[in-house]
């Protein structure tokens, strides 16, 4: 599966379009991480636990999107976009969407 966020796959020709595919995941972190993040909120700096969590979730959203594309018979997803939103206290939604295509 080739994933790109440009309109085409560089160096390859798109032969078929399958439409939009998407993947999303909502994640919350455990209390320990939340507590540490609370402390970090006082002293400032990077919240490593959150960075990891969001990175993992983004990968999962991307995988779900890729799975959906595979079911359609596509071998690439182009024009991928990411979005993050905080749906509730302590939970975040990661969303990935793109266009499933078949390339030569």
């Amino acid at each position: 599966m080739i994933l790109t966020n440009v309109n085409s796959v560089p160096g390859k020709k798109i032969v078929e379009h399958f439409g939009i595919v998407q993947g999303s995941t909502v994640r919350a972190k455990h209390v320990g991480r939340d507590f540490m993040a609370g402390l970090k909120n006082l002293i400032g700096g990077e919240l490593k636990g959150y960075t990891e969590l969001l990175q993992e979730s983004r990968e999962e959203a991307t995988n779900r999107m890729a799975e959906q594309a595979e079911q359609m018979g596509a071998n690439a997803v182009v024009n991928i976009r990411y979005a993050t939103s905080s749906v509730a206290q302590g939970a975040a939604e990661l969303f990935a969407y793109g266009t499933a295509v078949r390339v030569e």
Partner: peptide, 28 residues
Amino acid sequence: AEGSFRAGLVKESVLVTGSAVISIDYFK
């Protein structure tokens, strides 16, 4: 920008991501 590549130049293209969560301190 998207950029265009001449045929035969590109071997592979992959999506790369990077992220960081940064917090502000109490004083600020």
